[in-house]
Design a protein around this nucleic acid. Structure first.
Lengths: 166, 166
DNA sequence: TCATAAATGTTATATTATAACAATAATGAA
DNA sequence: TTCATTATTGTTATAATATAACATTTATGA
């Protein structure tokens, strides 16, 4: 923790000692900006689902989102949530965590990518890994078999620095 | 295809031009041997589920397995299949494909590993990647954030050599 | 302002997975 | 061998995740 000041805020901080309101705010501002540029409509429902996903750094399931959403709109039903999720995935504003059937906010929606994650089995937080090296290795590994990769899922589970201490 | 003779049979062959009965036979022999060594009981149901999973190189879902199994045992129900799958996963005889909620035979059950896969979006076949390099890179990448990996999911989707031609 | 397309509402159902308890079969100790 | 114990399988019910299909409403621009 002594080196804290030099640590980048978005990744590697493991959701400790940061003002999470900033994360949420940033995410919503970026989303609005991106959707604006693209002529994509970040409607109230979609914005709210994105906000709920950003309520923590833990992947959240569709029905957990629905549960919250139902308190705010009686009409909310599974398609309400899944449509919003589809939109947010298409816009690259969230990622799907395959190993959990859950969703998490994208740390860098300006740059299109699939996302590679480290997921703590103790606190549940997930952060994105820097992808370029692993991606290159995956691609060359695949190409040596003549296989051309179009998309990929990379999710590693284990213990984050904080949870190793506890 | 000119180099065919020099290609290892298990990986990289993309399920073409091979006698698949050999794959099934090998898998069942290895499974029996491993279970024997470990005192694990490869019962009729478990053996049959393993055989069904090995009926192709495409990941297969639990309910597809159940559908076939029901023709052979009227008693077959979801727990029948999921218990067999749990056993086979524990013994390392199959892998779970997270991106498809499906299961595939393990190419090398003697050596404990989680499996990294290339999955063709056209023909559906999946083969295991050589893991060591990617694993090392993932681990070092994680460690640079102080994260210790315990398990991982690596699944790449794209086009296999054969399907690129078609 | 109207036609069109996009988004949301609504109902129903498909798909994947597990809980809980009962019955049966395998195993080893006495 | 017999019995107690454990592992496996049977059975019913239900949880959790996801989509289909069609109706209604809202936004958008011609």
């Amino acid at each position: 923790m002594a080196k804290r000041k030099t640590v980048k805020k978005t990744v590697g901080d493991w959701a400790n000692n940061h003002d999470h309101r900033v994360c949420i705010g940033d995410a919503l501002v970026k989303a609005a900006s991106l959707c604006g540029q693209r002529g994509a409509r970040l409607t109230q429902i979609r914005r709210r689902v994105l906000e709920l996903i950003w309520s923590s750094h833990r992947p959240i399931g569709a029905y957990s989102l629905l549960k919250v959403l139902k308190k705010e709109r009686e009409n909310a039903a599974p398609p309400t949530v899944y449509r919003a999720l589809d939109f947010l995935l298409e816009q690259g504003l969230i990622h799907r965590i395959q190993s959990q059937n859950a969703f998490i906010g994208c740390a860098d929606p300006n740059h299109q990518h699939y996302g590679m994650f480290l997921i703590c089995t103790d606190c549940g937080n997930a952060v994105e890994l820097e992808e370029s090296k692993i991606d290159r290795l995956l691609n060359s590994s695949a190409l040596s078999q003549g296989f051309v990769i179009e998309s990929r899922t990379v999710e590693a589970a284990g213990l984050c620095p904080q949870c190793q201490i506890n």
